[in-house]
Amino acid sequence: MIKAEHLHKSFGDNEVLSDITTTIEDGEVVTVIGPSGSGKSTYLRCLNLLETPTKGKIWIDDVEVTDPKSDIMKVRENIGMVFQHFHLFPHLTVRENITYAPMKVKGKSKAEANQIADRLLEQVGLSDKADAYPSRLSGGQKQRVAIARALAMEPTAMLFDEPTSALDPEMVKEVLDVMKSLADSGMTMIIVTHEMGFAREVADRVLFLDEGKLVEEASPVTFFENPKTERAQDFLSKIL
Protein backbone atom coordinates (compact mmCIF):
# COMPACT_ATOMS: atom_id res chain seq x y z
CA MET A 1 0.00 0.00 0.00
CA ILE A 2 1.24 3.45 -0.90
CA LYS A 3 -0.48 6.30 0.85
CA ALA A 4 -0.02 10.03 0.36
CA GLU A 5 -1.62 12.39 2.83
CA HIS A 6 -2.08 16.12 2.22
CA LEU A 7 0.92 16.15 -0.08
CA HIS A 8 2.24 19.57 -1.08
CA LYS A 9 5.20 20.37 -3.29
CA SER A 10 6.49 23.80 -4.24
CA PHE A 11 9.46 24.84 -6.31
CA GLY A 12 10.19 28.31 -4.94
CA ASP A 13 6.93 30.22 -5.17
CA ASN A 14 5.48 27.82 -7.65
CA GLU A 15 3.12 25.35 -6.02
CA VAL A 16 3.17 22.23 -8.16
CA LEU A 17 1.19 19.91 -5.93
CA SER A 18 -1.52 21.03 -3.61
CA ASP A 19 -3.05 18.87 -0.93
CA ILE A 20 -3.03 15.49 -2.66
CA THR A 21 -4.36 12.55 -0.70
CA THR A 22 -4.35 9.11 -2.30
CA THR A 23 -4.23 5.47 -1.28
CA ILE A 24 -2.95 2.86 -3.68
CA GLU A 25 -3.76 -0.68 -2.58
CA ASP A 26 -1.57 -3.70 -3.19
CA GLY A 27 -2.09 -5.17 -6.63
CA GLU A 28 -3.90 -2.09 -7.85
CA VAL A 29 -3.11 -0.50 -11.21
CA VAL A 30 -3.66 3.24 -11.13
CA THR A 31 -3.13 5.63 -14.00
CA VAL A 32 -2.51 9.30 -13.43
CA ILE A 33 -3.65 11.59 -16.21
CA GLY A 34 -4.05 15.29 -16.72
CA PRO A 35 -2.78 18.19 -18.83
CA SER A 36 0.95 18.80 -18.97
CA GLY A 37 2.17 20.83 -16.04
CA SER A 38 -0.58 19.45 -13.84
CA GLY A 39 1.90 17.89 -11.42
CA LYS A 40 1.48 14.23 -12.43
CA SER A 41 5.19 13.48 -12.65
CA THR A 42 5.97 15.42 -9.49
CA TYR A 43 3.33 13.41 -7.64
CA LEU A 44 4.92 10.19 -8.85
CA ARG A 45 8.44 11.34 -8.00
CA CYS A 46 7.36 12.29 -4.51
CA LEU A 47 6.20 8.73 -3.85
CA ASN A 48 9.77 7.36 -3.96
CA LEU A 49 11.19 10.62 -2.66
CA LEU A 50 13.05 11.62 -5.81
CA GLU A 51 11.36 14.89 -4.89
CA THR A 52 11.08 15.81 -1.25
CA PRO A 53 7.51 16.86 -0.45
CA THR A 54 7.22 20.38 0.95
CA LYS A 55 4.44 19.24 3.26
CA GLY A 56 2.48 16.09 3.89
CA LYS A 57 3.23 12.48 4.62
CA ILE A 58 3.84 9.35 2.58
CA TRP A 59 3.42 5.82 3.89
CA ILE A 60 4.67 2.69 2.23
CA ASP A 61 2.84 -0.15 3.92
CA ASP A 62 3.11 0.83 7.58
CA VAL A 63 6.26 2.90 7.34
CA GLU A 64 6.11 6.65 7.13
CA VAL A 65 8.88 7.31 4.61
CA THR A 66 8.69 11.09 4.94
CA ASP A 67 9.84 10.67 8.52
CA PRO A 68 13.44 11.98 8.51
CA LYS A 69 14.51 8.89 10.45
CA SER A 70 13.31 6.45 7.81
CA ASP A 71 15.81 4.87 5.44
CA ILE A 72 15.10 6.33 2.00
CA MET A 73 17.40 3.87 0.27
CA LYS A 74 15.46 0.96 1.68
CA VAL A 75 12.23 2.50 0.41
CA ARG A 76 13.61 2.97 -3.08
CA GLU A 77 14.86 -0.60 -3.18
CA ASN A 78 11.29 -1.78 -2.96
CA ILE A 79 9.74 0.61 -5.45
CA GLY A 80 10.80 0.29 -9.06
CA MET A 81 10.74 3.31 -11.33
CA VAL A 82 10.63 3.62 -15.10
CA PHE A 83 11.40 7.00 -16.65
CA GLN A 84 10.25 8.73 -19.80
CA HIS A 85 13.80 8.87 -21.13
CA PHE A 86 14.80 5.38 -19.93
CA HIS A 87 18.04 6.49 -18.22
CA LEU A 88 19.80 3.21 -18.88
CA PHE A 89 23.47 3.26 -17.89
CA PRO A 90 25.13 3.79 -21.29
CA HIS A 91 28.53 2.40 -20.34
CA LEU A 92 27.11 -0.94 -19.17
CA THR A 93 25.69 -3.74 -21.28
CA VAL A 94 22.02 -4.64 -21.05
CA ARG A 95 22.87 -7.52 -18.72
CA GLU A 96 25.07 -5.32 -16.52
CA ASN A 97 22.34 -2.69 -16.38
CA ILE A 98 20.00 -5.31 -14.93
CA THR A 99 22.43 -7.11 -12.62
CA TYR A 100 24.20 -4.07 -11.14
CA ALA A 101 21.67 -3.08 -8.47
CA PRO A 102 20.74 -6.61 -7.33
CA MET A 103 24.45 -7.32 -6.81
CA LYS A 104 25.45 -4.01 -5.21
CA VAL A 105 22.31 -3.21 -3.27
CA LYS A 106 20.89 -6.62 -2.43
CA GLY A 107 24.17 -8.51 -2.28
CA LYS A 108 23.16 -11.15 -4.80
CA SER A 109 25.91 -13.28 -6.29
CA LYS A 110 26.81 -12.77 -9.92
CA ALA A 111 25.27 -16.12 -10.83
CA GLU A 112 22.00 -15.29 -9.07
CA ALA A 113 21.85 -11.85 -10.65
CA ASN A 114 22.53 -13.30 -14.09
CA GLN A 115 19.74 -15.79 -13.59
CA ILE A 116 17.36 -12.97 -12.73
CA ALA A 117 18.53 -11.01 -15.77
CA ASP A 118 18.00 -13.97 -18.09
CA ARG A 119 14.51 -14.56 -16.77
CA LEU A 120 13.52 -10.88 -17.03
CA LEU A 121 15.02 -10.44 -20.48
CA GLU A 122 12.95 -13.37 -21.63
CA GLN A 123 9.90 -11.83 -20.01
CA VAL A 124 10.39 -8.57 -21.94
CA GLY A 125 11.39 -10.41 -25.11
CA LEU A 126 15.01 -9.28 -25.35
CA SER A 127 17.05 -12.36 -24.55
CA ASP A 128 19.17 -11.83 -27.65
CA LYS A 129 20.24 -8.34 -26.52
CA ALA A 130 21.85 -9.31 -23.22
CA ASP A 131 25.36 -8.35 -24.27
CA ALA A 132 24.49 -5.28 -26.34
CA TYR A 133 25.09 -1.75 -25.16
CA PRO A 134 22.03 0.50 -24.80
CA SER A 135 23.13 2.68 -27.72
CA ARG A 136 22.47 -0.29 -30.02
CA LEU A 137 18.82 -0.58 -28.96
CA SER A 138 15.69 1.11 -30.26
CA GLY A 139 13.63 3.28 -27.91
CA GLY A 140 11.10 0.54 -27.29
CA GLN A 141 13.84 -1.96 -26.54
CA LYS A 142 15.55 0.49 -24.17
CA GLN A 143 12.33 1.00 -22.26
CA ARG A 144 11.78 -2.73 -21.97
CA VAL A 145 15.30 -3.12 -20.59
CA ALA A 146 14.56 -0.28 -18.15
CA ILE A 147 11.47 -2.16 -16.99
CA ALA A 148 13.54 -5.34 -16.56
CA ARG A 149 16.19 -3.38 -14.63
CA ALA A 150 13.56 -2.09 -12.20
CA LEU A 151 11.96 -5.53 -11.84
CA ALA A 152 15.32 -7.12 -11.05
CA MET A 153 15.13 -5.52 -7.60
CA GLU A 154 11.92 -7.49 -7.02
CA PRO A 155 9.97 -4.38 -6.06
CA THR A 156 6.58 -4.47 -4.41
CA ALA A 157 5.35 -1.62 -6.61
CA MET A 158 6.35 0.02 -9.89
CA LEU A 159 6.12 3.67 -10.85
CA PHE A 160 5.98 4.61 -14.54
CA ASP A 161 6.62 8.22 -15.53
CA GLU A 162 5.24 8.65 -19.05
CA PRO A 163 6.98 5.46 -20.19
CA THR A 164 5.88 5.73 -23.83
CA SER A 165 6.02 9.49 -24.37
CA ALA A 166 9.53 9.50 -25.82
CA LEU A 167 8.90 6.58 -28.17
CA ASP A 168 8.21 6.47 -31.88
CA PRO A 169 4.56 5.49 -32.39
CA GLU A 170 5.36 2.03 -33.71
CA MET A 171 7.26 1.17 -30.52
CA VAL A 172 4.58 2.16 -28.05
CA LYS A 173 2.72 -1.13 -28.28
CA GLU A 174 5.67 -3.36 -27.39
CA VAL A 175 6.19 -1.41 -24.17
CA LEU A 176 2.51 -1.28 -23.30
CA ASP A 177 2.25 -5.04 -23.88
CA VAL A 178 5.00 -5.66 -21.34
CA MET A 179 3.26 -3.37 -18.88
CA LYS A 180 -0.07 -5.06 -19.49
CA SER A 181 1.31 -8.49 -18.70
CA LEU A 182 2.95 -7.03 -15.61
CA ALA A 183 -0.41 -5.65 -14.51
CA ASP A 184 -2.00 -9.07 -15.12
CA SER A 185 0.61 -10.64 -12.89
CA GLY A 186 -0.70 -8.62 -9.96
CA MET A 187 2.03 -5.98 -9.67
CA THR A 188 1.06 -2.74 -7.95
CA MET A 189 1.50 -0.06 -10.60
CA ILE A 190 1.16 3.69 -10.71
CA ILE A 191 1.38 4.99 -14.25
CA VAL A 192 1.56 8.57 -15.46
CA THR A 193 0.51 8.38 -19.09
CA HIS A 194 -1.01 10.09 -22.07
CA GLU A 195 -2.12 6.77 -23.55
CA MET A 196 -5.84 7.02 -22.85
CA GLY A 197 -6.71 3.70 -24.48
CA PHE A 198 -4.19 1.97 -22.27
CA ALA A 199 -5.33 3.85 -19.16
CA ARG A 200 -8.87 2.76 -19.84
CA GLU A 201 -8.07 -0.85 -20.57
CA VAL A 202 -5.55 -1.64 -17.85
CA ALA A 203 -6.31 0.66 -14.93
CA ASP A 204 -8.39 -0.23 -11.91
CA ARG A 205 -8.65 3.44 -11.12
CA VAL A 206 -7.89 6.76 -12.78
CA LEU A 207 -6.56 9.82 -10.98
CA PHE A 208 -7.11 13.10 -12.82
CA LEU A 209 -4.81 15.94 -11.81
CA ASP A 210 -5.10 19.55 -12.88
CA GLU A 211 -3.07 22.51 -11.67
CA GLY A 212 -1.56 20.47 -8.88
CA LYS A 213 -4.86 19.27 -7.46
CA LEU A 214 -6.48 15.87 -7.49
CA VAL A 215 -9.62 16.88 -9.32
CA GLU A 216 -11.26 13.55 -9.95
CA GLU A 217 -10.72 9.93 -8.97
CA ALA A 218 -12.83 7.17 -10.50
CA SER A 219 -12.92 3.82 -12.22
CA PRO A 220 -11.88 4.11 -15.87
CA VAL A 221 -15.36 3.41 -17.19
CA THR A 222 -16.92 6.09 -15.02
CA PHE A 223 -14.15 8.56 -15.68
CA PHE A 224 -14.02 8.22 -19.44
CA GLU A 225 -17.77 7.91 -20.03
CA ASN A 226 -19.13 10.04 -17.28
CA PRO A 227 -16.60 12.50 -15.94
CA LYS A 228 -18.09 14.46 -13.07
CA THR A 229 -16.04 17.63 -13.09
CA GLU A 230 -16.07 20.23 -15.77
CA ARG A 231 -12.29 20.23 -16.00
CA ALA A 232 -12.14 16.51 -16.66
CA GLN A 233 -14.90 16.85 -19.27
CA ASP A 234 -12.98 19.67 -20.90
CA PHE A 235 -9.71 17.69 -20.87
CA LEU A 236 -11.30 14.57 -22.32
CA SER A 237 -13.10 16.52 -25.03
CA LYS A 238 -9.75 17.84 -26.21
CA ILE A 239 -7.91 14.56 -26.41
CA LEU A 240 -10.49 11.89 -27.26
Binding site: N48, L50, F83, H87, L88, F89, Y100, K104, V105, R149
Partner: peptide, 20 residues
Amino acid sequence: GQKEAAQALGISYGEMMKDI
Protein backbone atom coordinates in the same frame (compact mmCIF):
# COMPACT_ATOMS: atom_id res chain seq x y z
CA GLY B 1 18.66 11.19 -15.16
CA GLN B 2 21.58 8.83 -14.50
CA LYS B 3 21.65 9.96 -10.90
CA GLU B 4 17.90 9.59 -10.58
CA ALA B 5 17.93 6.13 -12.09
CA ALA B 6 20.64 5.08 -9.63
CA GLN B 7 18.75 6.60 -6.72
CA ALA B 8 15.51 4.93 -7.76
CA LEU B 9 17.32 1.59 -7.65
CA GLY B 10 18.50 2.26 -4.11
CA ILE B 11 22.16 2.52 -5.12
CA SER B 12 24.24 4.36 -2.51
CA TYR B 13 25.90 7.70 -3.29
CA GLY B 14 29.41 6.26 -3.18
CA GLU B 15 28.69 3.34 -5.51
CA MET B 16 26.73 5.60 -7.82
CA MET B 17 29.69 7.97 -8.12
CA LYS B 18 32.25 5.20 -8.55
CA ASP B 19 30.40 2.92 -10.98
CA ILE B 20 27.80 5.08 -12.72
